[in-house]
Design a protein around this nucleic acid. Structure first.
Lengths: 213, 213, 213, 213
DNA sequence: TATGAATGAGCCTTCATTCAT
DNA sequence: GATGAATGAAGGCTCATTCAT
């Protein structure tokens, strides 16, 4: 979200300015989360932050710049939060930790991500933000699965990328989401088979020739 | 989406009227899917349908009525499509069939569901539409899992509701989505544990003392 | 002023629409001439034309489009009006005719040209409009002078381009400019006669019974 | 421009204050000339002068006061510069000198005069400023012509006022107007000579070796 | 004096909806 | 039924001016 062409207002030079900017961001986030982006008026933000109408424009060039500032924070938080370090080595523990963080991130930023999705419907730049987060996370999980397979711990009849995709966010959503279609490397049949296997196993089904038999 | 208080325009009386209404719906769906709800103007719809601006209002009371008509179709389709009949008895086959239908439904209506989500950001009625679809589907999957457990086919250390939730749509998304929080019947720790178990098994991890050993 | 990139509203399809558009243009011209471009609000135009606020935007994309439409008319009128045909052959008569037309054009469009100049201060496209008109007219006068010189009628120690430049402007501008009219002590005929005499002599025309004979 | 009712900020009391005020005036002139009055923001002026936004108001009550200060300088300069003293007695030489000064004044202040014209479109007080300069200059030229006629040097069938009017404007305006400079194919001396010749002849001066001799 | 921030009136523009034909 | 035009509430943004430090 830091296109070079975007001109931002300069940063506050005084403590008072910094506080006002923060108040505005907090107010905007509250309102965006509550009513969504489009339904939030600039004047709502100024009222919620208890400043005058024009003051919003002292710190942000336009409405979108407010969102951009919020998204920048969320994105960098997300990237930081989702990386599981090497201090945990046990595979199951790593997975548990990843799950824990994922839920945590969702609790904190889930609503804002929905807001981003709202805007992404119109603005491809935000589509890219979401794709980026997801792509990054899927790649991370994919690598993790591959590692497990190489170590002989995980069954190797599972496609790492599909499994990762399914785990990250329900698969279907992005598999057929706008703009992802073309880059999806797998056909439906493979997807269905892979998902079915994962879920069957996940439920601990005692299948005749399953790897857990 | 059929609140009794909503007054709809009368159904088309002539063949010509029916065709116009269909053209408008098709045009609206195309545009909603392409640009989202808010970004689609009533005049865009009329242009896309090659009728005059005023004609949209001959068939729909307002913009939301256009969406409502589209959503009604999608919802009933979804409910119909996702119910797996009794003709398939093998558990794995049933699951594969359910997955197949789920992906199929997403392919057909995924973009429109995103549009509904966009509107749901402002209008609780559409929030309810989405919750309804999801709730219905999760309930179905939950019942299925419970049945497997009762039959001794599925491991019974898995919470059917959480598992179903995880399977339906990536879990995190709706677990912490707006308005769902209060009704979530489980705490985080349980959720993390359940998900971790499912996924570990799903990948076929050979755990020393796992429940499938 | 017809940059290809500029998207105009489509032309009115009904008589009523045509009339409204005309009313708006007339109202806008009156106001622009009276208060200038910047000082005229879009709402002023709608009020002056006795239509609602939004109706201005039914016929013009934005405020500048209103000006553009007016300027287009003026420019084409100017180009048409200033060309003296071949039906007049006597040099002095031609010059008198050119002066007459020039003054006439100024009386009709002088105030609007000042408005264009106001906008030209900010927008180079209008700078170009003015330069274009002037350049065209100077070129025409220059050619006329050169013809006279070649015919041995005009003194050839006069630079045709400079002379033309000096002759084109001057006079008309303030003669019919805003607020000067009332204090102008002379009628048109006198003005034309005087200018013609001055310029004829300035070019060194050897007139049969001129005061210098 | 020195209406007694206008309350101006007090004159700078310190050397530092004087310098700030000068910097602001210089900056304002640069910007006005470059973009015009309306398009120049008070904040632009402060930035160009490298002071804080509020400082402009330390020295000028409002935006118009900045323009007024600049105009006052230009006007007094103009009145001073255009008066040809008695030290030149030869008619042609006087006229050449007047032309020279006129062009010179235009080179220095032409752009600012255009800016004044921009404002004059809205504010009659500036209309009066321009009229004043012009009226004064025309009166001067008129007197000069009348003197020549009384002396029997100039033809007396020329209306002095009209002739003066025609002579004052014209040329200079575009010769040194924005953006024309580079394309002007002639140097000042040639321009002056040509104009002088034209006008001398136009007045019917009986020059020793003129074409009318 | 100078500074950086805050203020708010004012204006342009959009677009769902209504209307006359 | 369909059409093209008219309506007007609503909201984003600008910028001259004021204020507290």
């Amino acid at each position: 979200m830091n296109a070079d062409t975007v001109v931002e207002r300069s940063a506050p030079l005084t403590e008072r300015g910094r506080r006002t900017r923060e108040k505005l961001l907090a107010a905007a986030r509250r309102l965006f989360e509550d009513r969504g982006y489009a339904a939030t008026r600039m004047s709502d933000i100024s009222i919620e932050a208890q400043v005058s109408h024009g003051t919003v424009y002292t710190w942000f060039t336009d409405k979108e710049a407010v969102l951009r500032a919020l998204v920048d924070v969320i994105v960098s938080e997300a990237y930081a939060a989702l990386a599981v370090g090497d201090e945990i080595s046990d595979p199951l523990a790593r997975m548990a930790e990843a799950n824990r963080r994922y839920l945590q991130a969702y609790r904190r930023d889930g609503r804002m991500l929905e807001v981003v999705e709202e805007v992404a419907g119109t603005d491809p730049r935000y589509r890219e933000v979401l794709s980026g987060i997801r792509r990054d996370h899927v790649a991370r999980v994919t690598r993790e699965i591959e590692r497990l397979q190489r170590a002989g711990v995980a069954a190797d009849d599972v496609d790492p990328a599909i499994a990762a995709s399914a785990m990250v966010e329900g698969f279907g959503r992005h598999w057929y989401g706008r703009g992802e279609q073309d880059t999806s490397p797998h056909d439906d049949a493979t997807a269905v088979a892979t998902l079915s296997t994962i879920w069957a196993r996940g439920l601990g089904l005692r299948l005749p020739d399953g790897p857990t038999a």
